[in-house]
Amino acid sequence: MMNFFYNLTLYCDAPQPWGLYFQDSASPQMEALIELHDNIMFYLAIILFGVAWIMISIIRNYVSNKAPISNKYLNHGTLIELIWTITPALILILIAFPSFKLLYLMDEVTDPSLTVFVEGHQWYWSYQYPDFSNGDDEELEFDSYLVPESDLEEGALRMLEVDNRVILPELTHVRFIISSGDVIHSYACPALGIKCDAYPGRLNQISVLINREGSFFGQCSEICGILHSSMPIVIESISLEKFLFWLQEQ
């Protein structure tokens, strides 16, 4: 009963308990995003220390018992106003350069080798692989539901495991076409650096190249109803041969 002190929160978005930083990247765009983040953090640190220093100096030097006479008539100060307008503008420009560069790079269309079609529903994802179909015009499609806690094997990640994972080959340009069947959802996988909203009636395209084998977890990122927290995404990337083998089994 008295376990409210022990109920530490497991932040399900990062498989690390209490993880604060990004998950390990598995695609070049995620690596670029992490680098941009670190770049901007440099400017933020400068601003943080500068502003903190100014504030502490003002508080220490102008406290009322040290400087009791207040100047009520200070109205202008053109030089300092110029400085504190131009300096943030310059800092913003410095931040903007790598940011826009990455933005346009990510928007660049690559010729994808594989298309995966993702449709969000309340409260599961359904996937289709439209490039592959057997002779009967049957497509490869499946739904992906959360594994409830009672069905979890020991050691599995709670609230992140699904019954059918998205299997993709590594080192292949994959295009996700994301849509929705009912309300807005958002398809997010932080390790791959993708997050794309799913709107009914609209097809959003996002492309990914997965660098390494492994499983990558993500969650629905747009509130969609009561089970919005129970719509995880698991993308598993395997080598090309194993992928072809898996395809044949379907």
Partner: peptide
Amino acid sequence: ATNEYMKENKIEPI
């Protein structure tokens, strides 16, 4: 067991 699972599936290897 989660640690074992992560090792097997190469989750967060870096």
